[in-house]
Amino acid sequence: MSSDDTAAAAGADASPGPRHGRRLFTIWLVLAVPAVLVIWFAWYPHMPPGRMSDSARHQQFDIAVLAVSAAPVIIAVLLYFIYAIVVWRARPGDEGDGPAIYGNTKVQATWIIGTTMIVLWLFVFGTVELVVPAGAGAGEGPSPIWNLTGKHTAAWSPGANDMLQIQVIGQQWAFTYRYPQFGGMESTVLDLPANTPIEFHVTSLDVIHSFWPYVLGVKADANPQVDNVAYTTVQARGGFKVRCNELCGIWHGAMTTDGTVLPPAAFQAWAAGVQAQERSLGVLAVLPPYALTYDPTVIPQLGKSIIAIDGITGGAGYYYNSSDPVTP
C-alpha cells in the first residue's frame, strides 16, 4: 500500500511495463520456435493415425497443424504463469498490495481479436480439411454431401476407378462385411484393395456400435436401421485391426476384427473366390444380390433356416444369437 506502489500502478495502467513484456516475448520466442520445429519435423511423421489411407494422412496432417498452432499458445500461457510466480511473488515480510489495475483496454482488445482470429483460422482450416478429403473418413449419414469421385457400378473391377462398396454390419459383438458388388458375399475379415476409392455403409442390427479401423482413419457409428456412409482410399498395403468405438455391451472391449489391404488384382481374386464358395454352399441364394442397405433380420427366408457355415460368413448363425462367450 506504499505510495511507490500506487505510482507504479498508475504507470502500469497506462502502459504495461516494457521490460517484462520484452523479456517474456524473447523467452517465448526461444521456446516456441524450436517447439514448433520439433513438432513439425520430428514428431509429425510419426503422429497417429499414420499414413495408411488418404483420410488417415489428412487426419495426421490436421493433428500436426493443430499441435503446431497449440504449442506456442500453451508455451505462452505457461511461461507467463511461471514468470509471474518467479518474478511477482510476494517477498517474505511484504504485506502490501499489488497495483490497483482494473483492466487495460488495449490488452483486452488485443486478446479478444487475437483469439477470434485463431478461432476463425481453425474453423476455415477444419472445414476445408473436412470437405476436401470427402468427409475426412467420418460417418456422413445416409446421403453424404462430400463424397469421393469414383464410378458406382454393380460389379467391381480393378483399375477402372470403380468405387468399392462395403456394407459394415455391426452386432453384439462382431462386425460382418458384406460386398454387394460380389453378389452380396459376406466375410468376417475386412479385405480391401489398395489405391481404390472405398465407400463404407455402416449399420447395426442391435445397439449402437462404431466402426473404427484405426489406421485407416475411418470412424462411423453403426445405428440400427441407419445407413452411415464413410469414404477413404487406402494407399499402403498391410494388415490392420478394426475396433468398436461405442459402448455396446459387455464384450465391447473384445469386439475386434482383422483386415488386410491387398493389391487390387489380388483383392479381386480373393473376393471372387469367396463369392464362388458362398454361392456353391448356397449362402448367396438367401442374400439379396446387390443392395447397399440390407438388414438380415427383415429378410424373410433367412428366418426360416439359419445356415451355419463356419469361417465363411458372419451372417450365418450369428444374426439371431448373440455371440456372448460367457453365457452362450
Partner: peptide, 8 residues
Amino acid sequence: SDVPADTT
C-alpha cells in the same frame, strides 16, 4: 472440435 482430427 476439429472434425477430421476428431475422427481419430
